[in-house]
Nucleic acid binder design. Structure first.
Lengths: 120, 120
DNA sequence: ACAATTTCGGACTTTTTTGTCCTATATTAC
DNA sequence: GTAATATAGGACAAAAAAGTCCGAAATTGT
C-alpha cells in the first residue's frame, strides 16, 4: 500500500499529476485504493498476474488486435488488404510478447544496477 | 498531375484540409507540386519505389526502429529490457513488411470491386 | 502585360488532450 | 464524535493538435 504523496516523492513528479494517473488505473482495474489514514494504492492483482498486455490495454487500448493495420474497415480474411496475412503473424507475435511477461518478472529485471543509474 | 480541387471532390473531403495534407507531403518529399494553371500534385518518385515505410516515415516517423519498446532510454544490447530480443525480431518483421510493399502493388489490389464498395 | 488558376505558408479558430486544483467523501485512531 | 489523513471526482487552465481561411507568389495561356 503506497500513498500518492510517497510515490510522488520517489518518482519526483507532481502530486496531482500522479493522483490522476493512479485514479485512472483504479478505474481500469489495475490498482485498488483505500481512503483514509493508512490508505493508498495497491496492485489490483498479484504482480505475477499482471501482464504487459493488461497495461497496454489500460493505457492505449488493444484495438491493434482486431483492426486492419492499413486502416481499411472492409479488410478481412475474405477480402484481405495487401499485408493482411503478414500482419496477422506479426500481430500475434506482439500479442504473445505482451501476455508472456508479467510485471513481477520485469520488476526483478529492473532492479539491476544498470537501470537504477539512469532511470528515475 | 492532380489538383487539390479535383482530389477533394473525388475523396469528398474539405478542400483546405486536403491542401494542408498535400503540402506537408510535398515538404516530406513524397509528392511534388507545380503552381499555376495545369499545376497540381504528383508522386515524388515512381509508385513502385514508394513503400509503406516511406509513408509511415512521413506521417508517423520511424522512431520504432531504434527506440526501446518499453520506453527505457538505457535499454541496449548490453543492457536489455525484458523484451529486448523478442521485440528485435518483431520489429524487423514489421520493417520488412513496410519496405516489402510499394504503392503500385497496393493500388492494384485496391482496385478490386470489394474495396470500391466500401472505401471512399 | 494581363487575367485566370494553382500551390504556399502563415494566421487564426476549434477541438482534444494534458495537467492542476479544490471540495467532497471515506477511513482511521484516539 | 472529532480531528487528521487519504482518495474521488469534477471544475478549471494550459498546451497541443487538428482544421480553416486568406493573402502572396508562381505559372500558364492569350
Amino acid at each position: 500500500m503506497t500513498s500518492i504523496k510517497e510515490l510522488a516523492k520517489k518518482l519526483d513528479i507532481p502530486y496531482h499529476f500522479l493522483a490522476k494517473i493512479l485514479q485512472d488505473l483504479v478505474y481500469k482495474g489495475l490498482l485498488t485504493s483505500q481512503k483514509g489514514p493508512t490508505g493508498g494504492f495497491a496492485l489490483g492483482m498479484p504482480a505475477k498476474d499482471i501482464t504487459l498486455f493488461h497495461i497496454v490495454e489500460a493505457i492505449d487500448g488493444v484495438g491493434f488486435t482486431n483492426r486492419c493495420v492499413l486502416g481499411f474497415p472492409e479488410c478481412s480474411g475474405k477480402n484481405p488488404c495487401a499485408v493482411h496475412e503478414q500482419w496477422a503473424g506479426l500481430r500475434d507475435g506482439i500479442y504473445q510478447m505482451l501476455v508472456g511477461r508479467n510485471i513481477a518478472e520485469i520488476a526483478k529485471e529492473m532492479r539491476k544496477p544498470e537501470y537504477r543509474a539512469v532511470a528515475r
